[in-house]
Design a protein around this nucleic acid. Structure first.
Lengths: 216, 216
DNA sequence: GCTGCCATTCTTGTATACACGAATATTGAC
DNA sequence: GTCAATATTCGTGTATACAAGAATGGCAGC
């Protein structure tokens, strides 16, 4: 547990929302949450305020908090922005790459290769995450890294669904190869282009997303 | 005043921070704020929690809240991300432009022209803001628009400082002209490119920023 | 006179109490 | 039986009370 109950609750409720335990549209009753976590309403409210500020829930005055339901279209928009930010991170990484970042990216890339070849979609899910985080860090822009991490976190559940789609694992990994090559070659614009298409949702992948969302 | 005290306080304190009334590094005492606004500590704390979540203040456990001091480097990073997001907004706007957006952009652009020709830097400051917001809206991506608005808001104080720099007014307006042309021509990539350079801080403009920050 | 330890004070973190608006159930009229 | 007006319940919004950790100041020892 974190040092104070408020933060701990914020993380707990955030996780519960992102893992779909609290479904979109669901009402979050302060007293129910308080008794569930064995605390009073005060830290619960503080946690809710923070989740409201980052856009995970909506607090309607005098009418309680509900989990925001982004809907397919908005999720598409979020991926669109994510693609742009990752593209920027990639281009900066290519320009600013140092030995340490190169090492971390290579390591994550190799783990992805193993999981992809093994066809282990769960393992790939985690390794892929580390790969992308390695690129954020390699951008050497703290603010960009934070923005990427935050958006990545929010999109995590949908990413996971996407990996279930047929052939997505090997396709994803081969895209990684190109990205790594571009970054290591110092070709920022190529890295940006490849990451944008890698992260963005084009064509049939959007209907895949919608389909997987409705059946979860 | 907003419907509930918590939100009102959040806006009040946010404005006070962005207008530099609460300086970076300054400690925000809950009781001082409470008595200043004539309320109890509870809504003050809720406001602080929200400001913490959006990264305007830092709450150190048991040690109170302080206004975050971004520092020149981080502000540069924020402009870098802003440039990228505005570039995306511009490219989407060019592709999706409808009559309504065209009208709003044209109107804002004309107001910029008047303020620029009059050399009225305060008027231009507001008109310029409306111009950029018009482009966010024209992107027809609600999420992108929100992200842009939020970051724009945070960078507002520094934008204002930049406009004070010699010749920046006319330079800015002539850049606007190119952006409008590209968007109206449906040239998304050109709009993106122009907006990126328009918003980003290159070369001497970074030292201008640093200089203006130290003397405010 | 300076340094380190302890007591005091001050501020934050959490719980509880109370007030008020919204949602809901109940009762009465038609 | 349906609808509307009203009473009741329920949950949020704010204030206050209490607990506990951090900052501060004083005192003793050197």
């Amino acid at each position: 547990m974190s040092e104070n109950v408020g933060r701990w609750l914020r993380d707990e409720i955030e996780n519960a929302i992102l893992s779909n335990e609290f479904a979109p549209g669901e009402r979050l009753d302060e007293m129910v949450l308080a008794s569930r976590f064995g605390v009073s309403r005060t830290p619960v409210r503080e946690a809710l305020m923070q989740l409201n500020a980052i856009g995970l829930i909506e607090i309607r005055p005098r009418r309680g908090a509900v989990v925001i339901d982004p809907g397919p279209h908005r999720i598409y928009e979020m991926f669109e922005v994510m693609a742009e930010l990752e593209g920027l991170a990639g281009s900066l990484a290519a320009r600013r790459l140092d030995e340490e970042s190169r090492r971390v990216i290579t390591a994550a890339h190799k783990r992805c290769e193993q999981s992809a070849k093994a066809g282990d979609s769960d393992a790939y899910y985690y390794d892929n995450e580390e790969f992308h985080k390695a690129i954020y860090a390699a951008s050497r822009s703290d603010f960009l890294e934070e923005q990427c991490m935050q958006l990545h976190r929010r999109l995590r559940p949908y990413r996971r669904l996407q990996l279930r789609v047929r052939n997505r694992l090997s396709t994803s990994f081969s895209e990684h190869c190109g990205i790594v090559d571009a970054i290591f070659a110092g070709d920022g614009e190529e890295a940006r282009r490849l990451l944008r298409t890698h992260v963005g949702i084009q064509g049939e992948r959007f209907s895949d997303l919608v389909a997987s969302m409705s059946t979860r």
